[in-house]
Design a binder for these strands. Structure first.
Lengths: 201, 201
DNA sequence: AATAAATTACACCGATTAGTGTAATTTATT
DNA sequence: AATAAATTACACTAATCGGTGTAATTTATT
């Protein structure tokens, strides 16, 4: 009869995921070889295959980890005692957080690239996680009730806000190798002022 | 002594470039094999290598063709007799043109993906072509002289405008498989209204 | 029709890759 | 210390890919 001696596999698993992220970020999916990932993780290739059965599975695990982690953003509730500017800035900063460390920036670039190359996979993956707009939409509803915001469609207003943040900060940072905080700060003030010029009551 | 009988190589060259674009678009750079490109172009692999010495060269030729073609946008001069809305819409539409056919959309996605994977190459390549903002900047200067536009910095205003267009239309289209004109039209009206809420004099 | 350039078909090379099988070895648990 | 699970080292496969060499063939020009 077989005894069960379960050892802790999570350490190796984490090391493999870490290595995979590094290699995926710096070579892209196609050029990231399983040998290189194993070497980077400090683990034998066989162990990589024992934990994740294939390159595709390993990739999925990396993506899942990232998107799950990304999902853990605390809600930003409407506060009538704070200015609209500083509350909107909090929403912008939550978006900027995703590209505000070399690793998160790298993962964002990697995922964006993968999504560009496989639109269907992008749609399916994004559909599994709650929409980005939702939290801002809740906030806008409260602000409207409070008489501070006015818009024909709050959904469109939310989309305009994220268009401003992503178009002015997120995407430029993806291509320029990272955030230039000194340049971004005044830009954030400007896009928030623009948003409020249109939607402040 | 050697006679020179020059035949026209441009037909084959064009066919190869066409095939390369197709394959690059649908498989990405790494997975696009030279055999597949030759087959798609209806040409022997040897001919591909006779025209372009390497995969890298062929890629460069594709990119050059696209960016050169892209550069040929007619200038949009400020016209005091037209509304600001319709003139700004022309700028937006010039941007949208780049993703408004399956082929241009595909090339935009492909190039964006390549740029994400090689930031240095992105910078060098973009630097070889005139900045996107320039034409709008000229227009804004004229509009300001005409007393219709007012901004602390016209450059920032131009960046806000393109942030709106790219964030609301260009990038979403890259990921969603193309433009939904019915949905984009009201969005364009909204982002132009937003821009003018901030910068109209 | 003669000629030279362009193209083709095809075999081939070296390198790389995802993935497997296995026997030996390390590791943690009882 | 005994034991079973986890890991390792390593050899190996089958496939793919970028690129080359060559001899035969097609093509357009004079």
């Amino acid at each position: 009869m077989t005894q069960t001696k379960n050892r802790d596999k999570s350490k190796k698993r984490a090391a493999i995921l870490d290595g995979a992220v590094d290699v995926f970020i710096c070579m892209g999916y196609e050029l990231a070889s399983m040998d290189k990932i194993a070497e980077t993780a400090g683990v034998s290739k066989r162990t990589v295959y024992n934990h994740f059965g294939s390159k595709e599975n390993l990739f999925q695990a990396v993506v899942n980890d990232f998107l799950t982690q990304r999902q853990n953003l605390k809600t930003i509730a409407y506060d009538p005692d704070k200015t609209l500017e500083e509350q909107l800035l909090a929403f912008a900063n939550a978006e900027i957080f995703l590209i505000d460390s070399p690793r998160r920036l790298g993962l964002s670039k990697f995922l964006t690239s993968v999504f560009l190359n496989d639109t269907n996979y992008a749609r399916e993956t994004v559909a599994k996680y709650p929409p980005v707009y939702d939290m801002l939409l809740d906030w806008l509803r409260e602000a409207e009730k409070d008489g501070k915001i006015k818009a024909d469609s709050l959904l469109i207003a939310a989309r305009v806000f994220y268009a401003l943040v992503e178009g002015a900060v997120t995407y430029p940072s993806l291509f320029s190798g990272g955030i230039n905080h000194a340049a971004v700060e005044p830009m954030l003030k400007e896009i928030i002022a623009t948003f409020l010029a249109r939607y402040a009551a």
